[in-house]
């Protein structure tokens, strides 16, 4: 059995690869956007996995813990703080992309990226 950290790293990698595949090869613009949200989630999961510590505890300092024990056990809380921001940014970018996609659908009557974005000039 592989350990949890490695498995989580692998799955975050597969989220990124699935997302990249969708963003590059799938024609439908909504699915492209879904793929981009997977890339975002994979990157977030990668950061969280970095902070993980096997047999660790949640980084919340509770009464009754000594600082030495807490420092030797707790997960690294800095990436958690970073990811919180990054999740919100990802959601807002997604909302803007969907809004533009809706405008483009009204203009071209299609969700296909090759039709919507095809004309270069």
């Amino acid at each position: 059995m592989i350990d949890t950290q490695l498995a989580a790293l692998l799955s975050s990698g597969s989220f990124i690869i699935i997302g990249l595949y969708a963003a590059i090869f799938i024609d439908n613009i909504i699915k492209k956007i879904i793929g981009l949200s997977f890339i975002e989630e994979g990157a977030n999961m990668f950061l969280i996995t970095l902070a993980y510590r096997p047999d660790g505890i949640v980084p919340i300092f509770l009464p009754g813990m000594t600082p030495e024990w807490f420092a030797s056990k707790s997960a690294y809380p800095l990436p958690h703080a970073l990811v919180l921001t990054s999740i919100v940014i990802g959601a807002s970018t997604l909302a803007i992309m969907l809004a533009i996609a809706m405008v483009l659908y009204n203009k071209h009557g299609s969700l296909s990226a090759s039709v919507i974005l095809g004309d270069k000039k």
Partner: peptide, 14 residues
Amino acid sequence: LFQILLAPDVALTQ
């Protein structure tokens, strides 16, 4: 998974 990876606050947001 975030909950399992010891990040409950991020798990809530996610």
